[in-house]
Nucleic acid binder design. Structure first.
Lengths: 186, 186
DNA sequence: GCGACGTGTCAACACCTGTTGGCCTACAGT
DNA sequence: ACTGTAGGCCAACAGGTGTTGACACGTCGC
């Protein structure tokens, strides 16, 4: 059994500060010194616990996917459920915002973003789309709309995208996602 | 009349190298030294011609919008025309890819990206959408889909998004854009 | 001929970055 | 009570950054 060490609180403080900084500044501008200052410890502690900056980012961008139970619900509502789920996931904490800010200039971040969408969307898409070999393209289309809205709303903060209510976003995007998943190929 | 100076070729070489570096590396990792090395001149020339790094980026990310003549065509095809136009604009050079990579971590880039979409989409949206006060939200929805596909295809290079043919992309996205612009609000 | 000016290079500044190793302190096990 | 070790800080390294000023070469007007 693993007993709680004294260092666990420090680790947690570092990770929280790192997530905030990566989300606010991206990879290069989120410096280890700034993260350490936010966490109230010395920069060298970051190295001791996470090896180097890439290791810190890898640890700070780990996400539990928290897939909803999807098999049972009627496939007509799957678009709305999916959009709602992703908006939830984006607004609960700033891990995904950080990942989106980082993946644009960092290979590791890009690979992780791709892995997340594969794991999130792969099974869902395979379950509902008409032809299995179309599943990857359909998943990529859904990803493009989800990522584009997240970019406009949470990163670039385009005023109209920010001012839309959450229900409005779902009402507009759900039919798009639904069509990408279930409509016959054009 | 402005006669051609000898320095114009140098300016052009700097701008071309800067566009490539910004598109490949983003703002922070695209160093002035690397750009100058690519252009075959000294870093201090960059400062002399463009003042500082922000000035260089501002000059390198200037875009002639090249709006197509839009008023005359039947409004049923406006979605396909718009998607085609943006894909063209993204693939002609790497200015927009650079802007997309930069705007995620740089205020000036974000503001410029927003300005581009306002200028590109604003008039079109106002011309075709049912209620004028809905125009900004509809333009933001279109921007989210366009930006998301550009991110997946040209920046993150998700394999399924890259492997789709250009006609497939247009066939899938055009109805989405068309709906965001002309359908009644949900 | 000669100074002014445009074009360019060189060397340096001041600062910030990730990363490392040594030293100190306090608690745990025996 | 003593010692080992985990947790933490400090100072420094080596390298890279944007940016600046002094100096060299060429070409033009006069």
């Amino acid at each position: 059994m693993t007993t709680a060490r004294r260092s666990d609180t420090t680790r947690a403080a570092i990770l929280e500060a790192a997530r905030e900084r990566f989300a606010a500044d991206g990879y290069e501008r989120a410096t280890i010194r700034a993260i350490a200052r936010d966490a109230g410890i010395d920069p060298s502690m970051v190295m001791r616990y996470f090896g180097n900056k890439e290791g810190l980012f890898a640890a700070a961008s780990e996400i539990d996917l928290a897939l909803p139970a999807l098999g049972a619900l009627p496939s007509r509502h799957i678009g709305a459920v999916l959009v709602n789920h992703f908006l939830d996931r984006w607004e609960r904490d700033d891990v995904l915002t950080g990942l989106l800010r980082v993946c644009v200039t960092n290979e590791i971040g890009a690979a992780r973003m791709q892995a997340i969408f594969e794991a999130q969307l792969g099974p869902v898409t395979l379950g509902v789309c008409p032809e299995p070999e179309e599943a990857p393209a359909r998943a990529a289309l859904v990803a493009s709309q989800i990522l584009g809205m997240a970019l406009s709303r949470y990163v670039l903060r385009f005023p109209p995208a920010v001012e839309m209510s959450r229900d409005e976003v779902v009402a507009w995007l759900a039919p798009t996602v639904q069509r990408y998943l279930t409509a016959e190929a054009p």
